[in-house]
């Protein structure tokens, strides 16, 4: 059980470091890092949501960035209309109130995930991977075609989003803590969900879907629900990202972004919730820092990824796990 404690220590330490980061950055007179790490926390949320379907549900989706992008666009479009004082589709006014825009982003992303899941989850194996990828491309090109919102070039909007009259997203530190709070909330809620009856059903489907059906679970609806929830959380991350950047463009849902998310989840350790947080941190720091040494870092990183897959599948957080808690080899 010592190893289990080690894991708890690790999680608490990591979260504490994230909590203290803005103060440290201020003291070190490097406020630049606050924005950098806010971005990391946002992607950590997206990676957690992917891990729900990938690590816990065993569904290899190669289109998760689409839901992230949809969430971002909901916020971007509503902010844009609020700033321009125009109506969305000539019907709905825009909004800058995150109590409206963020839940709406979640809702739209979840609904899209529900629809896409409805078709995709009828298939399995390679078909599922290819279909999620193809749907993500469809969404990508949909936003490319939206010339009213910048098309390919994306859309910049005034970034003075105010959180419930309390927190201004222009305020670097306040916004950082808002994102941190969302991350902590997502972590806690997902942890509860994973240990709930629903969570066990999802993990049972990963282990042996045929068995699940044979003991009486209509597995499709549970997997669809999981896919939808994951899409919604990814949408929330996208909403935060839009507020973070004050800019949206289709490139945030390019299929390679979906690939990056998978890399984050696996590198950090899938099938744990803190793993994706670690993975997102390491991946994005690498992406930021390695180009200082060589601009050609992908030529090294690509083969490293291959080696990780071949030899270190448990991921960084996986090394901290006690052996009996690791997934047995199939």
């Amino acid at each position: 059980m010592a190893a289990l404690d080690r894991r708890h220590v690790f999680v608490v330490t990591l979260l504490a470091l994230f909590a203290l980061l803005p103060i440290a950055a201020q003291l070190a007179d490097q406020p630049f890092y606050i924005g950098q790490f806010r971005r990391i926390l946002i992607f950590a949320i997206a990676a957690i949501s992917l891990d729900l379907i990938l690590g816990y549900g065993g569904m290899v989706s190669l289109g998760h960035a689409a839901f992230f992008g949809i969430g971002a666009y909901v916020v971007g479009i509503l902010n844009h209309h609020a700033a321009e004082e125009t109506l969305f589709l000539g019907l709905l006014p825009g909004s800058r109130n995150v109590l409206i825009t963020w839940p709406l982003a979640m809702l739209v992303a979840a609904a899209s995930a529900g629809l896409i899941g409805l078709v995709s989850l009828r298939t399995s194996g390679i078909y599922f991977i290819m279909i999620t990828l193809a749907f993500a491309q469809m969404v990508y090109f949909f936003f490319v075609s939206l010339s009213a919102y910048g098309g390919d070039d994306g859309l910049r909007f005034p970034g003075d989003t105010v959180i419930a009259g309390l927190i201004d997203t222009q305020d670097d530190i306040a916004f950082y803590y808002a994102v941190f709070a969302v991350l902590a909330g997502v972590l806690y809620l997902c942890q509860r969900m994973i240990e709930s009856r629903f969570g066990l059903v999802i993990q049972g489907c990963r282990e042996n879907e045929r068995r699940m059906q044979a003991i009486g679970f209509p597995t499709f609806r549970y997997r669809l629900a999981c896919f939808t929830i994951a899409g919604g959380i990814a949408g929330l991350a996208g909403a935060l990202f839009a507020a973070h950047e004050s800019y949206i463009s289709p490139s945030i849902m390019h299929w390679t972004r979906s690939g990056d998310l998978i890399v984050m989840v696996v590198m950090g350790g899938m099938g744990s919730l803190i793993g994706p947080v670690v993975g997102a941190t390491v991946f994005l720091l690498m992406e930021k820092l390695l180009p200082d040494y060589t601009e050609h870092w992908p030529v090294v990183f690509g083969p490293v990824l291959l080696l990780i897959v071949l030899f270190a599948k448990r991921g960084i957080f996986g090394w901290l796990r006690p052996r009996e808690h690791r997934r047995a080899a199939p």
């Binding site: 990938l54 290899v60 190669l62 194996g125 390679i126 991977i129 390679t256 690939g259 998978i262 890399v263 696996v266 050609h296 870092w297 992908p298 030529v299 990183f301 690509g302 083969p303 490293v304 990824l305 291959l306 990780i308 897959v309 071949l310 599948k313 199939p330």
Partner: peptide, 18 residues
């Protein structure tokens, strides 16, 4: 499993592009 294949060949894409 397919996930390993996706990741590893994704790594190959990064490698070849660079």
């Amino acid at each position: 499993d397919h996930l390993d294949q996706v990741l590893a060949t994704f790594g190959l894409i990064l490698f070849f592009n660079e």
